[in-house]
Design a protein around this nucleic acid. Structure first.
Lengths: 238, 238
DNA sequence: GCTTGTGAAAGGTTTCACAGCT
DNA sequence: AGCTGTGAAACCTTTCACAAGC
């Protein structure tokens, strides 16, 4: 046996087989979680086009995943397709959103109002996918008070106060490497345990904290590795 | 047997066992490539501190990886450590840089001079890790000619000309989803086959193209999934 | 007939544990 | 004595292929 157990039947009234205290929905495989976000994106595009049903093959094509992988991933959520027919777009979209926890509202504070922090604060893609950017903070006195998009930059010295006032439950760190650990510690102490860091440095966090990292130079380095292995073409020259 | 074969002995004169035409260094496991970038970062920090040697345990701690994983990854590059002692920092750093293809110069053109494109163009982390940002392009007539950092925004209509003039060999797409595929096709046709996309859309590319994707909303969605599973704390409240 | 859902196989990754070298 | 390098085991992920159901 490899992956989780019970294909969670969402029936809310199902009898508890074992008297465990947490109803404890089985965890989805990490790789599946990442792909579910892709399916969601694709489904919303299908929805916008007015499609009512999609096959695993359609979804596969629209998200760059194999169709058997799609089916396997969706099976972790339960059996919501119809054999011979496919999946109902709207219903599946909602199912996935629920499984990913996107039904509650997520309030994001961005710490660091440099180039990247400002860009993120103005990025429409967050709002459109259910994430409210509720604060943008910086330490620099010259920046505090400036307006960026809908937001006014607030004082990072007052981090805790701002997090509490805005009821932020996620934080994005858009800081230089040197400042990141310190701010990270304060964020955690303030009770926010979901953090997305763009700082190119290893952050030390307790294991109850959810930390994800995006490092753009790393991405280029990985590209460089692959580019270097295929000697073909390379530089522009149609 | 799972992972690659021969632990490439970099001895440049080793006899060719089989008369294959490409010397064909065996591919590194994808997961190892990603971690090698972390080791490189850590090694450069050690170097800056004046450390001359590190153990796999030191490197592990500094990059957030297990020490056996570090050793396994490094063994793909050959045996460059000394038993009982550790690895020489400078030497290992160079070895990894070579393996990743970071010894040649990488010239990056950024297409899209919106918030994100501008932020990336000014991001010092690229230059400091060996990537030269050589162009920033946009379609918007009002932006063309503006200065951003060291660069002047050039006309995306002239994409091919600019890629050739600047000898770009990588492209970063910082565009809205709608424009991404079209620009991507032109980039590939112009001979640049390494692309990092920030556009939240699936790009269709031939398989000789190296494409990596970063989607920030996806990252938040994955965080949301994990956050939702651990009911503890959540909102700020020290 | 067509498409889902899923065991089983194949493939990739990480950890273990220890032999081998300094 | 200490730390690397590495087979073997454990684990995780993807693909295969087909039975089940519309």
């Amino acid at each position: 046996m490899s992956t989780p157990r019970v294909p969670l039947n969402a029936d809310p009234g199902a009898e508890a087989d074992l008297p465990e205290l947490e109803p404890q929905v089985p965890a989805l495989p990490a790789a599946a979680v990442a792909r579910l976000t892709l399916y969601l994106r694709a489904l919303n595009a299908f929805l916008a086009e007015g499609a009512e049903r999609v096959s695993s093959e359609d979804l596969a094509e629209a998200s760059g995943v194999s169709s058997s992988n799609v089916r396997k991933d969706l099976s972790y959520l339960g059996s919501y397709g119809t054999r011979g027919v496919g999946y109902e777009v709207q219903y599946l979209s909602r199912r996935i959103a629920t499984a990913l926890g996107l039904t509650q509202d997520w309030r994001v504070a961005i710490v660091g109002a440099g180039n990247l922090g400002r860009a993120l604060a103005r990025y429409a893609g967050f709002e459109s996918r259910g994430f409210d950017v509720v604060a943008l903070l910086d330490r620099d006195q010259l920046m505090i008070g400036q307006e960026v998009g809908w937001l006014r930059i607030s004082d990072a010295e007052q981090l805790e106060v701002t997090l509490e006032r805005t009821k932020a439950n996620m934080v994005v760190l858009a800081l230089p490497a040197e400042a990141a650990q310190q701010v990270c510690d304060r964020v955690i102490a303030a009770g926010v345990h979901s953090i997305l860091s763009f700082a190119p440095v290893l952050l030390q966090v307790p294991d109850y904290v959810n930390l994800r990292k995006v490092d753009m130079a790393t991405e280029l380095q990985i590209l460089a590795y692959h580019a270097q292995r295929l000697p073909e073409a390379g530089t522009a020259s149609a």
